[in-house]
Each structure stands twice: as structure tokens, then as C-alpha cells.
Amino acid sequence: MAHEWIFIGIILLFGTIFAAVPLVVNTIVAPKKPNVLKNETYECGMETVGDTWIQFKVQYYIFSLVFVIFDVEIVFLFPWAVAYKQLPFFAVVEGVIFIVILAGGLLYAWRKGALDWV
């Protein structure tokens, strides 16, 4: 099956090999002399204080919620943009209405202060 996705499969395969070969060779060839200092998470740099599994601020969640909405918008607009040049004027206006309605949502999020980083 000659397929355009074959190329993505090949890139995926060779990308994995490309990343895996140095790691595997390192594991085989490198001498292993571990000590306490080497086994630190950050051999150099700041040591973490306390548990690293902390509770995130709700702010992140609101940003990702807004992102999800506009991600769905992209899915709807992508076929419209592909067909753009073959569409009558009326159909183009429909797409613009779609964008304007969602721009209202962005305006709401903005005015409500959901996009302010605190």
C-alpha cells in the first residue's frame, strides 16, 4: 500500500533509532562508577526543596481550557480554509461568522481577567 503516511512512519522509525543508538551504545561502552554526588537529580544546579509533586495553580487549568476551545475551532476552520478558494462569497462569510462568535468568547475571557497571569 503506497501511502503518504509511509514517510511519517519512516521518520518515526528512524527518529527512534537515531535517538536510541547513542543511548544503547553509551550503556554498553561507558564505565560505571556511581557515587552519591553523581546520582543526584541535578548534578549541578539548585537542589529542590521539599516534594516536587506540588499542587499547581488553577490559572494553568483556565489557560488550557481556553486552549482546548480554540483547538476545536481550528479543527472546524481547517477544512474551511482548505476549500477557501473554491467557496462562494456567502460561504466565506459563514466562516467569518464562526470566527466572530468565538472571538466574543475570547473577549469575555479577556475582560473577565482569565488571561491575566497572577
Binding site: F78, L87, L102, G105
Partner: peptide, 26 residues
Amino acid sequence: VLILGKSLVDPSKYVVPFEIASVLLI
């Protein structure tokens, strides 16, 4: 994708669901 894009904004096909989707998203 081209066929889908054309039928999404075609008044005789899926334009009403298309616009309702934006209202649903907002």
C-alpha cells in the same frame, strides 16, 4: 478535506450544525 470544507459551509448541507458548533464552543 476539501469535500469536508465545502460541505461544512454549504447552505444545503451542514452550515447550521457548523454555526451551532461555534455557539456550543462559546
